[in-house]
Amino acid sequence: MTKLKVYRIYTDIETLRALPRGQQSDLVKQYTGTSDINKRLVLELSDSIKLEKSISDAEVAVLPAILNYYVEKNKLIELEFFLDKAASKGIKVVALNKGDDNVRVPFYDDLIIYKSGGLRSKMRSNEYGLPVMISDKWNDYYSWGFTFPHSDHPTIGFCGQGSATAGKVLAEYKRTFVAKFNKSKDYEGVFSQSRLRANALSELEGDKTINSQFIIRDRYSFHKENGKLNYQSQNEFYENIRDNQYTLAIRGGGNFSVRFYETMMMGRIPLFVDADSPLPFEGSQIADQLFPVHDLKKSGKTSVSETLLNYHQGRSPKELEEVALQMRRTWESNYSRKGFIKTAIRLAVEQ
């Protein structure tokens, strides 16, 4: 049996421990976590990743905090000190840039950045897409085993905020216009994500050859009531994904879709509306786009419903089920937290 390569990484563990949990890098935060989930993740990673105490023994370094911390706290000097330390050993540094509004940092040759949003066409040569790392709900919804719904007409689900009131649209236009003057953040242009989403939902629902199963809410499905999570709305959300072949995945306030990853995790096929949105590991075999993509820049007069119908009609029921299973496998191996850590570290070492 071929022995797996173990990649040796380094981070400043003392700095990592001192950081608030939300500002720690997802690539290494498990090494300071005390929960069973973090302990299990460290154990599961141990066959492929080893955290070294000395940077001299490492093949790649991981910035302990997300880039947002260094920009928003005016601590770029700490970032550059870490980069210089890694450069003196001839190794690269991997960092994460998270949130709806990604921060801007200078270009550093030896810094590899995974960012959640921004415009793909504006990304620099050292920037790549960052998946949203979510919990695995597979066992909660497939306790009896995996099944895939088959039908002649495509069935597509969506559960979440889908309204576009005049007040909401105006507020989003205003927010994105003002963002132009914030030089510390990426600028994506003036737009309304609510209007974009509502238009896509309306197109799909208006096509009678598509079975649309939409649950439209006026707020986030995972909202809290009296300080507690609304588990009923969460359950409806995941059941809506499970009970349909496809789920609409379209950007929100940031140029990424959490629902895209939730759909893959659930073994279903995302209908991805591409708003110049970065996806992880593009240009590699990992990112083979088996799912339908409606590119807003290239679609021309083609509607999002036509994109779905063309995709669905070109595949047999057996092929669609295999795509759905491949979505799940891709999420597990590359887009889950464990999968992303392994893949990102491996690619950083191999670059």
Results as ranks from 00 to 15, higher is better:
residue 4 L to G: 04
residue 7 Y to L: 12
residue 10 Y to L: 04
residue 12 D to A: 11
residue 12 D to W: 03
residue 22 G to R: 14
residue 26 D to E: 15
residue 27 L to Y: 05
residue 28 V to I: 13
residue 30 Q to H: 11
residue 33 G to D: 06
residue 34 T to A: 14
residue 47 D to Y: 13
residue 50 K to G: 02
residue 50 K to H: 13
residue 54 S to L: 12
residue 61 A to Q: 03
residue 62 V to K: 01
residue 65 A to Q: 09
residue 74 N to R: 13
residue 80 E to V: 11
residue 82 F to W: 08
residue 89 K to Y: 13
residue 92 K to G: 06
residue 96 L to K: 00
residue 96 L to W: 05
residue 102 N to C: 14
residue 109 D to G: 04
residue 113 I to W: 02
residue 115 K to E: 13
residue 115 K to L: 10
residue 117 G to I: 06
residue 125 S to P: 02
residue 131 P to Q: 05
residue 143 S to K: 07
residue 149 P to M: 00
residue 154 P to D: 05
residue 157 G to K: 01
residue 159 C to V: 07
residue 161 Q to W: 06
residue 161 Q to N: 11
residue 163 S to N: 12
residue 164 A to V: 06
residue 169 V to T: 10
residue 174 K to Q: 14
residue 184 S to D: 14
residue 184 S to L: 12
residue 198 A to S: 15
residue 198 A to H: 11
residue 202 S to G: 03
residue 203 E to Y: 04
residue 204 L to Y: 00
residue 205 E to M: 08
residue 208 K to T: 12
residue 211 N to W: 03
residue 214 F to E: 03
residue 215 I to V: 14
residue 216 I to H: 02
residue 223 H to T: 06
residue 224 K to A: 12
residue 227 G to T: 09
residue 235 N to K: 07
residue 237 F to Q: 01
residue 245 Q to L: 05
residue 247 T to M: 06
residue 255 N to V: 08
residue 255 N to M: 09
residue 259 R to V: 13
residue 264 M to H: 02
residue 266 M to S: 04
residue 267 G to Y: 00
residue 271 L to Q: 01
residue 286 I to H: 07
residue 290 L to M: 12
residue 294 H to F: 14
residue 298 K to C: 11
residue 304 V to H: 04
residue 306 E to S: 09
residue 308 L to P: 02
residue 312 H to P: 03
residue 317 P to W: 05
residue 319 E to L: 05
residue 320 L to T: 01
residue 327 M to H: 01
residue 334 N to Y: 15
residue 336 S to Y: 02
residue 340 F to N: 01
residue 341 I to G: 04
residue 341 I to W: 08
residue 342 K to F: 06
residue 342 K to P: 07
residue 344 A to G: 07
residue 350 E to P: 10
